[in-house]
Design a protein around this nucleic acid. Structure first.
Lengths: 196, 196
DNA sequence: CCCATTTCTTAACCTGGGTTATTGTAAACA
DNA sequence: TGTTTACAATAACCCAGGTTAAGAAATGGG
């Protein structure tokens, strides 16, 4: 069953007995998001956080010139939402959509907070997950401030060796923070590599 | 007493009784970090997280060209550490030092984890604090990807109206991600403002 | 299987912000 | 009180990466 993927993720950090697992399951909703459909759209409120069982989601913002900036890819085993909107229940400025048909478990903020009271170990799990996300987000900031585009591209290739193959280049460009044209230039080796 | 600043911060999110407050206090160490002294230095391990009672700390990384990039300012009421090193107990790549004489409470990771078991409400507090940090970090990433230097400077002025006055410009530059020379150009209005 | 749409590449040109250098100014400290 | 050290301003020049445009290649949906 697909719930096993989620249980596996939990067991990496905490131990739930059968009963607790079942209680958790009661608070989740399984949903299919088809390719190009939105899980969350600008100005909506992020009522839920999603755990990806299969497929892949991405979150991105659109700037005032219409350019997309990808914040996160969420392949199998990842959680995704707009944390700002999720915790404040204010309208989001982000979009989250599916890069391919994707199966997710949805957990509403309400249910999450209830679960934290009923099963404190789950609060621990999310505390740990959030700590890890913060580390990732900070590191990405550092990379954007410190590295050249070609270094960021090299990073991406080693960090997401899977994604790099079955992802259109324009999405890679929107993640590392360059135009598709410039990424193309980088890949063709025209741009001097600055000792990568 | 200076511990009151910390208690105030806690009470915004959780309720601790007298006994719990005292237990917490037993796990904290009060320390003074004098101006320009380090709380954390590259290659050390972040054994503790610091709560700033008075003064101001800053965390920054140094890139391969020797440029400093400031990740966070921590004035009164803020927590600061390198989360990566703190949770993994691996050597940090960051530096954290004092911009002025600063008084902090230190909480070691060991003590923190023990407190989480003894007072689950504290795990809740840090879960919330970490969620908020993640929101801030993500927003800063978006700003760096979407905004021009002059827009980021304007943002900084409205977000940290206090800091902007008593902070040398070179530190502001190292935060918004430009050279001090260019920030100077921005401030003198020479650079076209791109309707910001 | 074909046509429409999206994605990728290339190339000429442009610009936001960096680099280097100089000069002025203001704290810190002896 | 002078002097050393750090900070800020300005200016001339430079370059990583963006912009525009146009054709080639891949994709996909009917």
């Amino acid at each position: 069953m697909s719930i096993q993927k989620l249980i596996d993720s939990l067991q990496k950090h905490i131990n739930l007995n059968r009963q607790e697992q079942e209680m958790l399951t009661d608070f989740l909703v399984l949903k299919i998001i088809k390719k190009k459909q939105f899980f969350l759209h600008e100005a909506q409120i992020a009522k839920e956080v999603a755990f990806v069982v299969s497929g892949c989601l991405r979150s991105y913002s659109i700037d005032q010139n219409g350019f997309e900036h990808i914040l996160q890819f969420a392949p199998t085993g990842w959680w995704i939402t707009d944390m700002y909107s999720f915790i404040s229940q204010q309208p989001t400025h982000l979009n989250i959509d599916a890069l391919m048909d994707t199966e997710v478990y949805l957990l509403s903020r309400q249910n999450q907070l209830q679960l934290f009271d009923k099963i404190p170990k789950l609060e621990r799990y999310f505390r740990i997950i959030t700590e890890n996300s913060l580390v990732g987000s900070r590191q990405r900031l550092i990379d954007n401030l410190s590295l050249t585009a070609s270094q960021r591209y090299a990073n991406f290739c080693t960090t997401y060796p899977t994604l790099i193959h079955d992802l259109p280049q324009k999405l890679v460009a929107a993640y590392i923070g360059v135009t598709p044209e410039f990424l193309s230039k980088l890949r063709s080796g025209v741009a001097k590599s600055k000792k990568s």
